[in-house]
Design a protein around this nucleic acid. Structure first.
Length: 730
DNA sequence: ACGGCACGGGG
DNA sequence: GTGTACGTGCCGT
């Protein structure tokens, strides 16, 4: 019988691996074994002593084997220690670790995932095809035209009885499974739900906020009603702990995961990869990283690339150094940053420009890593001190002898992304599927660069990060020079993109640059017009704030309010409406002609705000919080809203968002100043003048290069106000 | 004037 | 298990 690997996890009590395989006849549970091994590197004498010491505490299944303990190194003798009890891996490692320090010995393969160990040993992988009952692989990980498993799914939606923020004490109002709505007495709803899930037997259950609220809520209600609720195919949920952590330059909150057994729970809210690239994106990354779908849905693309690197290392005879250091030590700035000047930026020419070409490199940073063989073991490798391959500006030499781990992992990813893009262009029913795979791979590629500079990454190294950005700057500068030589005017350039104006052949320019740099430079499009915005503080070109209209009519917007998460719907709508108005222009003169009339769009918004009739929901601001209420040292709108929530017994974790309406922006009292969104009833007075100012700012952001900055628009507003008053008196 | 605080990026 | 550093702008004191 043939099936697909749906899920895999360790049964810690029995020291066995449980794999769920989806066959034509449904899902089958397969029990398997893997003996986890940890490895110790030490001097010969020390290893002899370790063998004796381990025997004293009852660990006798040890042997000397040959493995690579570092990238680019030859195999050496290490001690392999079999750990029969899955729960003892960490404790045993800590015991051994405590017997000496890192001068005496180093430990390896301590913190590998159990599913990863199992898959690597069996030669199978998540979402791959296997033959039962032997669990032998009938699939190949890097196949492009793989057969996608026929997964069935249901959508689970829960409604609670109660007002404001739902709590575990609210009874269930209704539960919907796809289109079937279950309501009535709570106990009966839960029993019907159980029966329905058993009958439908879906492979995937989709929820929104299933992790952060609804699954634990349903369990709690079931316990309260004295009924049992089992949403998986086997008993028990695999839960983890919620956490706030620092990433992407800010704090985010990750709720505890609620993973089912034998069925996959995907919480759309807590799955970045699903949101960005759908089920096909998840499946693609699950196959490549060998991380089970359900786990992967809760991980970042960075974890996926990291897993791919670990897998590649293990397959090529490496053992993986134990990462004990947890991320409490933040980077001490200084020397590191001095070397790293980030991506190169041409100062944009502020204002509107027409007939502008935009060209972008295809996955610039990952391509650089491949073309220039950048990897932790290849940059300043000990084997090629006189290598002719060097990094611009920095002079680091790069290994000439072999391809590094990072490029080895990247090549198939870049190839796949290119092929999927081509397949998508050919059209057909599978277009959407290829598109999703492309998006998933794109994210993996983006984070791969970030990981090289991440101190907690397994294969990170700051010199790699520096080298990549140095090559990037060099490539962009050379490309800009080539453009100028062909008579193009370089209006703006940032990291992997250039904006050019001129009469030359853009196609042959792209060809030339692609040939010279060995990295494809693609034409993103031609703008009818594009506006580069100034920085308010410095007045000169802002790097990443622009909006433009492509010749096919689509808009490209960066860095302006519509793109920000904290912008209220009102201001977002304002900018969209103004942009729609401006997109009627086809060139610079007609654009400038439309600027005055675009202010009429703004005027309508101002009037609506002052009339007091704006739907309160459109005025809600959302801010993510970086700390707990008591840790804030400065009073502001968010803190006011947090206090309100606190007063009513709700606490938010760092990384969660707070939403509120501004009711009196000048008030020092929390309840006067804002109204937290969960307590909104829809008829409260809002601070109209505050919102008028937000509208003016939204408009000024777009029009500041055209004599309509915030000061001008405020003055105009005051003037119109006094004119209105005069008219009324006349 | 200055520190506290939050946001974006890429398709 | 969690990409980086940085520019930017608003707000409160």
């Amino acid at each position: 019988m043939i099936g697909w690997v749906l899920d895999c996890y360790a049964d810690m009590a029995e020291n066995r691996m449980v794999t769920w395989v989806r066959t034509g006849q449904g899902a089958v549970r397969v029990i398997g074994d893997v003996v986890p091994r940890i490895y110790v590197r030490a001097s010969k004498d020390r290893l002899e002593k370790l063998i004796g010491d381990l025997a004293l505490i009852g660990v006798r299944d040890v042997s000397l084997v040959r493995r690579r303990t570092g990238l680019g190194e030859r195999e050496r003798e290490v001690l392999s220690v079999a750990v029969r009890d899955y729960a003892s891996i960490q404790p045993l490692a800590m015991t051994i670790d405590a017997w000496g320090d890192h001068h005496d010995h180093l430990l390896y393969n301590v913190d590998l995932r159990m599913d990863q160990r199992y898959f690597l040993e069996k030669g199978v992988f998540s979402m791959g095809m296997v033959e039962l009952p032997s669990m032998t692989s009938r699939d190949s990980r890097l196949r492009i035209d793989y057969q996608v498993p026929p997964l069935s799914s249901v959508d689970l939606r829960v409604k609670t009885k109660g007002v404001g923020i739902p709590t575990f004490d609210d009874p269930i109002a209704s539960v919907a499974v796809n289109d079937v709505v279950l309501d009535g007495p709570e106990g009966s709803v839960l029993e019907q739900l159980q029966a329905l899930i058993r009958e439908e037997d879906p492979d995937i259950i989709y929820t929104d906020k299933g992790d952060s609220f609804y699954l634990p809520y349903l369990q709690r209600r079931a316990a309260e009603q004295g009924v049992s609720l089992e949403l998986g195919r086997d008993r028990g949920e695999r839960t983890s702990r919620g956490k706030s952590f620092f990433t992407y330059g800010r704090i985010v909150y990750k709720p505890p995961g609620h993973k089912l057994r034998g069925r996959v729970h995907i919480d759309r809210e807590s799955s970045f990869t699903f949101r960005e690239s759908g089920l096909n994106g998840l499946i693609e990354l699950s196959r490549l990283s060998m991380i089970p779908l359900q786990d992967l849905s809760r991980l970042s693309p960075g974890s996926a690339i990291s897993a791919m690197q670990v897998n590649e290392a293990v397959r090529t005879g490496h053992v993986i150094l134990w990462k004990k250091n947890r991320p409490e030590d933040f980077k001490t700035a200084g020397a590191l940053i001095a070397c790293d000047r980030g991506g190169f930026i041409y100062e944009p020419r502020v204002g509107v420009h027409d007939g502008v070409w935009e060209v972008d490199f295809f996955s610039l940073y990952p391509s650089i890593m491949v073309v220039h063989n950048i990897s932790p073991e290849t940059v300043m490798c000990p084997c090629c001190p006189r290598s002719s391959l060097t990094v611009p500006e920095l002079g680091y030499h790069i290994c000439e002898k072999g391809q590094g781990l990072v490029p080895r992992v990247l090549v198939p990813i870049l190839d796949r992304r290119r092929v999927y893009k081509e397949l998508r262009k050919q059209g057909g029913q599978r277009g959407e599927m290829y598109d999703q795979r492309t998006k998933a791979l794109k994210w993996v590629l983006v984070t791969c660069f970030g990981y090289t500079g991440y101190r907690n990454a397994r294969f990170g190294r700051i010199e790699c990060h520096e080298s990549i950005t140095a090559f990037g700057r060099d490539i962009l500068v050379r490309s800009a020079e080539l453009a100028e030589r062909r008579g193009f005017d370089v209006l703006h350039g940032i990291v992997d993109s250039l904006w050019l104006r001129g009469e030359g052949s853009i196609a042959s320019y792209c060809e030339e640059v692609s040939r010279e740099t060995e990295i494809p430079l693609n034409l993103e499009g031609r703008y009818s017009w594009i506006v580069f915005l100034p920085s308010i503080s410095t007045g000169v070109g802002a790097l990443n704030r622009y909006y433009g209209r492509f010749e096919d009519g689509t808009l490209k917007l960066r860095g302006i309010a519509v793109r920000r998460r904290d912008t209220p719907a009102l201001v977002e709508d304002l900018q969209q409406d103004m942009l729609a108005h401006l997109s009627g222009a086809g060139d610079t003169p007609s654009f400038l002609e439309l600027v005055p009339s675009s202010l009429e769009v703004m005027d309508r918004y101002v009037e609506e705000v002052r009339s007091g009739t704006v739907d309160r929901g459109r005025l809600v601001l959302r801010k993510s919080i970086s700390r707990k209420l008591e840790e804030y040292v400065q009073f502001n709108d968010s803190v006011a809203a947090l206090r309100q929530l606190h007063d009513r017994g709700f606490e938010l974790q760092p990384g969660q968002s707070v939403e509120y309406l501004i009711t009196d922006s000048t008030s020092g009292s929390s309840w006067q100043r804002v109204r937290a969104a969960p307590f909104l009833e829809g008829d409260e007075r809002y601070d109209a003048e505050k919102y008028v100012d937000l509208v003016l700012r939204g408009a000024a952001e777009l029009l500041s290069p055209f004599g309509r900055g915030i000061h001008e628009l405020r003055a105009r507003d005051r003037e119109r106000g006094s004119k209105h008053r005069q008219e009324r008196y006349v």
